[in-house]
Design a protein around this nucleic acid. Structure first.
Lengths: 339, 339
DNA sequence: CTGAAAGCGCTTACAG
DNA sequence: CTGAAAGCGCTTACAG
C-alpha cells in the first residue's frame, strides 16, 4: 500500500492540511512542525500524488513540450535538441517538465485546447507542426500560452522562436552570389512547412536584390529527405544545365544533392556549389564538407521555453517573437562560380 | 470555463455515472444513450480530465519511458531511437505513452518507487542508467514492472532488453583475429556502465578463446566521448606500439580513435584496424568508413515496451531477457594485419 | 500557526 | 440499463 497524506498526518498527529502546507512550502508553519513532518514523511516513504495535486490545485505549474509526430531521422536529431533545450530550461528554473507526442489521429480526435485540458497543460512549447495541421490553425486563435518552434503566428498568447530563417537564407544566397554565381537553384522541403516558405523567401529576396532572374523551374520541393533530394537534384540539373549553385532547405537535402551531383560526374564545388542549412553533425563529415547555415536548436528551444514561461506569468515583454542568432558556416562544398 | 462531466450529465439529463460509463466503453449502456451522450459531449467540447481519472481509477494503463539524464550527443541520438521505439509500441497497441526524465538530484531526493508512485506509473522502460545509480540498485529488488535497456537484472518484475552485447563484441574481435591481428586493444567507456562491462567481457573471451594474451595496458577507459577517446588512443599506441587493431566500445569512441591514428601519421586500416559498435549514421561517412556492430535500438526499445506490457499483464513468458539481433558491418576501417 | 470542511472531476461497487 | 453515493489524495479559503 502506498502511503498518503492521511497516513503522514495521523503519524504526526496533525491535520492533513498541515502536511499539505509543509509540502507546498507555506511560510506560516513553525519550523519545528515543518521539520518534524518532513522527517516523518521521509521515513514513511511518502511522496505526494501528482494526480491528486493537479486535480485539487487546478493549476499545475509545468512546462510542456509537445511534438507533432515523432518521425525523425537519426541523421538530423533536431527533436532531441528541442526536447533538451526545453528540459534544460525547466531544470534551471525548477519547473516541472512534461513531454507529449501528438499524431494526426489525435489532431482529428480532439482540439488543441481539449488536448491541453485533458492533460492539464498550462502552456506548451510545440514543434513539428506544418501549416496544414489543424492545431496550427487553432493555435492562431488559442488562449493557451504556447510557443511554436520555427513558425510565426500573431496572437498575444503565442510566442514564436527560431533563427531568422528568412534573413539567414538571404545571407546564404548572398554569399553564393558574392562568389560569382548567377544561376542558383533551390531544393526546398515540403510546401506545407513554414521553414520551406520563409527560407524560399530569403532565397528570392537575395536573387531579386542582386538582380538575378528567379526561374520557376529552379525551385523544387521534396519531403526533406536525402533520397527525394537526390532525385530532384538530378532532374533539376538535367533541365537547368546552367545552374552553378544550389541552396538547400536543410543539410539532409544538401547531402542528397551532393551525392546526385557526384553521381552525375560533376565536381563540388568545381562545377556546382552546394549550401545547406542546420549544420547537422554529418555536415562536417561528408565529402566535400558542407557549407551551411549553423543554428543551435537547443538554444532556440531553451529560449522558447523561457518565452513561454513569460507568457504564462503574463510578464511585460517587447515582443512575442524571438530570433536567435545563426551563422553562415563555410566549408568545402561552396566555391567560386566556374568561369 | 472548461466543461466537466457534470455539465455533460446535466445537458443530457443523465447522471455523471452514465457519462463516465460512456467514456469508459462500458458495455451495459444502451446504444441510444451512448450515442446521444457522445454527441452532446462532442458538441460541448468535453474531454475527461486525466488527473481526475487517474486519481479515481487508481490505475492508469500507461507505458512510461524514463531516461536518467538527458545528456546526449547529436552525433549518437540513441535516446531518440529508444523514445521512438517505446512510443511506437504504445501507438500500435493503443496504450497511453508518457515520458519522464530523471536526474541525479531526483535519484537522491526520492526512490524509484516513490518516483513511480508520484507519477502514477504502472510500468516503465528505463534507459541511461549506470551501475552506480541508486535506481539501478533499487530496480534489482523493485516490484514495479520495469524494463531496462542495455543492462541485465534478475528480478521477475524486471525485464532486460538489448542486443547480445557480449556475443556481438566477441564476434567483432573474432573477426579481427581472423584477419591476422594478434595485438588487439580495446578503448572502453565508463567503468560504471553495464555495456562497458559486457563488451569488454566479449573482447576478453575472444582473445582467450584464440589464445591471445590479454594485457592490462591494452584496455583503457573513457567517458564514451570522441575527445577522450582521441587522447586515450594516442597514449595507448605510444605505450603499446605492437597494437594492430583497436576494438572500440562505440562508434563515437571509434571516431575519436580514428582521428588519433590519422594524426599519428599511421594509416587505417594499413597500420591499425578500427572496429566500432552501434553503427551510428556517421559511421558510414567518416574516412575511412567505419566497420562496426550494427544494432537497431529502435527495435530494441520496441521489444522492451512489449516485454514491459507483458510483465504488467502478468502474462506467462519464457524469460525476462530479450536479446535482439545485431550484425557485424564491414566497411573500410578494418583490414588484414600488417605482416 | 493549525484544523475542519468543502471541493477538484472523475470511477465504481451497490442497488434497483 | 441507470442512478445515488462514497471515495481517490490532495489544496485552499475560512475560522480561530
Amino acid at each position: 500500500m502506498r502511503v498518503t497524506i492521511k497516513d503522514v498526518a495521523k503519524k504526526a498527529n496533525v491535520s492533513i492540511a498541515t502536511v499539505s502546507r509543509v509540502f507546498n512550502d507555506y511560510s506560516d508553519i513553525s519550523d519545528a512542525t515543518k521539520n518534524r513532518i518532513k522527517k516523518i514523511a521521509k521515513d514513511m516513504n511518502y511522496v505526494p500524488n501528482l494526480a491528486a495535486r493537479t486535480l485539487s490545485s487546478k493549476t499545475q505549474e509545468s512546462i510542456a513540450c509537445i511534438f507533432n509526430r515523432l518521425d525523425f531521422s537519426t541523421k538530423a536529431p533536431w527533436i532531441l535538441e528541442v526536447l533538451s533545450g526545453v528540459y534544460q530550461y525547466t531544470i534551471d528554473v525548477g519547473q516541472k517538465f512534461v513531454f507529449y507526442v501528438t499524431s494526426d489521429e489525435i489532431q482529428n480526435e480532439k482540439t488543441y485546447t481539449q488536448f491541453c485540458y485533458e492533460h492539464n497543460i498550462t502552456g506548451a512549447v510545440i514543434g513539428g507542426l506544418t501549416m496544414n495541421d489543424p492545431y496550427y490553425h487553432e493555435i492562431k486563435v488559442t488562449t493557451i500560452p504556447t510557443v511554436i518552434i520555427d513558425m510565426e503566428v500573431d496572437n498575444k498568447f503565442v510566442g514564436t522562436v527560431s533563427v531568422d530563417n528568412k534573413k539567414a537564407s538571404e545571407e546564404a544566397v548572398d554569399y553564393l552570389v558574392s562568389l560569382g554565381h548567377h544561376e542558383i537553384a533551390m531544393i526546398n522541403g515540403k510546401r506545407e512547412t513554414y521553414v520551406s516558405l520563409v527560407r524560399e523567401q530569403g532565397y528570392r529576396e537575395s536573387l531579386e536584390k542582386n538582380n538575378l532572374m528567379i526561374k520557376k523551374s529552379m525551385v523544387c520541393y521534396t519531403d526533406f529527405e536525402e533520397g527525394a533530394a537526390y532525385e530532384a537534384t538530378k532532374v533539376l540539373l538535367r533541365e537547368n544545365p546552367e545552374v552553378t549553385a544550389i541552396f538547400c532547405v536543410n543539410d539532409l537535402v544538401a547531402i542528397g544533392a551532393l551525392q546526385a551531383v557526384k553521381d552525375l560526374r560533376l565536381s563540388v564545388p568545381g562545377d556546382i556549389s552546394i549550401m545547406g542549412f542546420d549544420d547537422i553533425p554529418l555536415a562536417a563529415y561528408v565529402n566535400p564538407t558542407l557549407s551551411t547555415v549553423h543554428q543551435d536548436l537547443e538554444q532556440v528551444a531553451y529560449g522558447g521555453a523561457k518565452l513561454l514561461h513569460s507568457i504564462i506569468l503574463k510578464e511585460e515583454r517587447e515582443s512575442n517573437k524571438l530570433f536567435l542568432p545563426h551563422e553562415i558556416t563555410i566549408r568545402e562544398s561552396v566555391g567560386q562560380a566556374p568561369s
